[in-house]
Computed example of a mutant assay.
Amino acid sequence: MFVVGGESLIDLVPETRAAGSRRIAHPGGSPYNCAIALSKLGNDTGFLCPISTDAFGDTLLVPLAEAGVAVLIEQRVVAPTTTAEVSFNDKMQASYKFTRGAERAFSRAALLAALPQDLGLYQTGGFCPIEPEDAAIWLEVVDAAIGRGAVISVDVNWRDLLVTDRDGYIGRLNGFLNKAHLIKVSDEDLAHFDPALSIEQHIEGLLARPNCKLVVVTLGEGGSLAFTAQGRGKAEIWSPPVFGDTVGAGDSLMAGILTWLDETGVLKPGALGRLDDAALAKTLRFGAVVAGLNCGQIGCKPPTRQEVDAVLGMP
């Protein structure tokens, strides 16, 4: 099973770009989005996050069920669902204002008890390193996943509005990155670490970490890059016929990359590091189509595997 651990929330998205436009509730959260995208691409997927008993919690459960994602913490919590007020710039790129709640209402015992024994991949990141007490527990989950033989992937998703202690956050995030076999970052994430370094310098440092074999960098409209010790790949974005917005594009791309790596038999620490230029380009292309199809929707609505195959001309 693939398991994604981390936040779920409700994106409160303006109906139009006009001032005072009413907001529409869309299920979201980077780990939540990625879990749904993974399942819709045909992977046996579980989501590790508490869900509230409130109406927004009911809303979150519907897409999980429709996609066939296993909700690993079955007991719902009374804390209110985390929300994110979404706004868009002129390029329809999203920014967020968060009010946190149910996704933090977990215990060490509950998370570890819900983690499956049969575990091929564990993905984390997002909000998990932000608060010290949360990070300590989530790191124990990562260690448990490693003990069960899982590949560890980390999607950074730096949320500057939530980071009140930059040095402390970086220290906690480093704890996650040092355990990861695969790391995904955006160019904006890298700039938060150190804007004076080039992408290549950042990548050199990430690949030098104890376990990292593959790094993926998203560049917004510039597409994506991938790096291993043996190669470098690049893919342009895939543009849908009708554009919606970019909500969940990076999460969908990550799900596509993980799916392709698994299907090609290389989602293993020993194999990831041997990917060459051609293999990395194919991996990113698959992810770009998944992300592009999601961008044809309003809010995060990842594509099915059939929709992706129709674009790529696969049987």
Rank of each mutant, 00 (worst) to 15 (best):
A145W: 03
T83S: 00
E236K: 12
V289H: 15
V86D: 01
Y122W: 11
C128K: 07
Q117I: 12
I137H: 10
G147V: 10
L162S: 03
A291V: 01
S87V: 12
N174H: 15
G270V: 07
M314A: 12
H202S: 08
C34R: 09
D187E: 13
E188V: 04
L9D: 03
E15I: 06
M314V: 11
Q93Y: 11
A180H: 02
W138M: 15
V311T: 12
A114R: 12
V215G: 06
E236N: 14
G273C: 05
F286H: 14
A18N: 14
R23A: 08
I36N: 07
T59R: 15
P315M: 08
I203P: 15
V154D: 07
G5R: 02
K97L: 14
V142K: 06
G222Q: 06
R76W: 03
A55C: 08
F193C: 11
S87C: 06
N89T: 11
S21R: 05
V217W: 05
A109N: 11
T99E: 11
P132E: 08
N89Y: 05
L161E: 00
A67L: 05
S107D: 05
L275S: 14
D11Q: 04
W138V: 11
F127R: 11
Y32G: 06
P80T: 02
T81L: 10
A67N: 04
D58N: 15
A281R: 09
E131S: 10
R305A: 12
D155Q: 08
I298Y: 07
I130R: 02
G233N: 08
G223V: 12
R159S: 07
I36P: 09
T82E: 00
L139T: 13
A180V: 06
V78K: 09
G233P: 00
I24L: 15
V217D: 05
L64C: 07
C300F: 02
R100A: 04
T53H: 04
R23P: 04
P132T: 10
G299R: 00
V71Q: 13
G231Q: 00
M314G: 11
L293C: 01
K301C: 10
R22M: 14
T283Y: 03
G29W: 00
I130A: 05
L280H: 06
G287L: 13
W138T: 05
A105Y: 09
P116E: 12
V78Q: 10
G248D: 03
G244A: 07
P31T: 01
Q306P: 09
A65G: 09
A150M: 02
Q75W: 10
A19E: 14
V242T: 12
E236R: 12
L139C: 10
A144M: 04
D194V: 08
S198V: 03
T124A: 14
F2Y: 13
S39L: 04
T81N: 07
S8D: 06
A196E: 15
N89A: 11
G313K: 03
I199L: 09
I298W: 09
I24K: 13
G233D: 01
V13L: 06
V151W: 01
